[in-house]
């Protein structure tokens, strides 16, 4: 079967933008790893490398004011939505110029002006919050949906089941997107879920769902585009399971002994970045030289972000007491 031409789906500039963002996210995450090794980034650090197709494909399929919520591997989600890389990096450095003034760190990015409603670090914590945002949107007749991203591990939390039931019962516009990267830290889906086909879990709640190749940015885009519009029109939840893979460990502290090098290599061979680049070149949307320029531009943005973070001031001591109460 012949693949649909990319140009039939999106204009050139948006396709290029999507690729740029995938590269930017990859460069950003790899730079984070370096800064962590240098001790500039501390605490927990969960990197997104390998999963870029999910954030980029999804975000471009959503309306700009649709809510996005995610877990703690969310740098890319925030950046693709429009958060400035320098302010995200500054947050990771714990600086006053960070997107959350250095109070949240890697796991708690937040940008309400972009409808990016947070990174949450208790597995499954974001489900009911997404349902509540969808309720508010429906109540206020805003027409925005809540796109709730989560990992495969989160589907065994009570909040997943409570929230699916609730969203369907109250007929709320929530798009659940499972980024199934095959492991909850070191425990595989097969070793944690009685039903490893996560998308089938919605049967008990009368919620339709689909599984999609999460390494293919256009497949993700198509699924989210269809799903988001269905959710918006029907005022009902929908679930997408994107099969993806993280190239790095769960966090920087993870030596990754639970998976074989061969398995990692197999997935790296399906890296969403070169796969998308090849299609862009094949269709004459970019040239090889332009791809190189995109990479150089991303490296420059990330370097500038690191410099900004390094040079930014630490938070004032007095700020420790600020922001607790309105």
């Amino acid at each position: 079967m012949k693949e649909t031409s990319l140009r039939a789906i999106l204009p050139d500039h948006e396709l290029v933008r999507m690729y740029e963002q995938m590269v930017l996210c990859r460069e950003f995450e790899e730079s984070c790893a370096e800064q962590y090794t240098k001790g500039h980034i501390t605490g927990f650090l969960h990197l997104y490398s390998g999963q870029e197709a999910v954030a980029v494909g999804s975000t471009h399929a959503l309306h700009k004011d649709d809510y996005i919520l995610s877990a703690y591997r969310e740098h890319a989600q925030a950046i693709v939505r429009g958060a400035e890389p320098r302010r995200v990096m500054a947050e990771l450095f714990g600086k006053a110029t960070g997107i959350c003034k250095g109070k949240g760190g890697s796991m708690h990015l937040f940008a309400p002006e972009l409808a990016f409603m947070g990174g949450y670090a208790i597995v499954g914590g974001q489900f009911p919050i997404a349902v509540g945002l969808a309720f508010a949107s429906k109540f206020r007749k805003e027409g925005r949906i809540a796109a709730c991203f989560f990992g495969d591990g989160a589907v065994n939390q009570g909040t997943f089941h409570e929230s699916l039931n609730w969203a369907r019962l109250w007929e709320l516009p929530v798009l659940f997107v499972c980024e199934n990267n095959a492991y909850g830290i070191g425990t595989s889906v097969e070793r944690s879920s009685a039903l490893a086909d996560i998308h089938k879990r919605t049967c008990g709640y009368d919620i339709p769902s689909v599984r999609v190749d999460g390494m293919d940015v256009m497949a993700v885009h198509a699924a989210v585009k269809w799903g988001a519009e269905w959710v918006r029109e029907q005022n009902r939840p929908y679930l997408i399971e994107a099969l993806t893979y993280r190239f790095r460990g769960h966090s920087m502290a993870d030596p990754g002994k639970y998976r074989s090098a061969a398995e990692v290599e197999l997935w790296k061979a399906r890296d969403p970045l070169p796969a998308f680049a090849i299609r862009l070149i094949e269709e004459g949307i970019v040239t090889q030289a332009e791809l190189g320029a995109i990479k150089q531009e991303s490296i420059a943005i990330v370097q500038e972000a690191v410099t900004f973070a390094e040079e930014s001031p630490w938070p004032e001591d007095g700020s420790v007491w600020e922001d607790i109460y309105a």
Partner: peptide
């Protein structure tokens, strides 16, 4: 539904949403 954690979580989200 009898889902206390979600009763509160949905309220958190709704409060966030205005």
């Amino acid at each position: 539904p009898i889902s206390e954690n979600t009763i509160i979580g949905v309220a958190v989200g709704a409060a966030m949403g205005g």
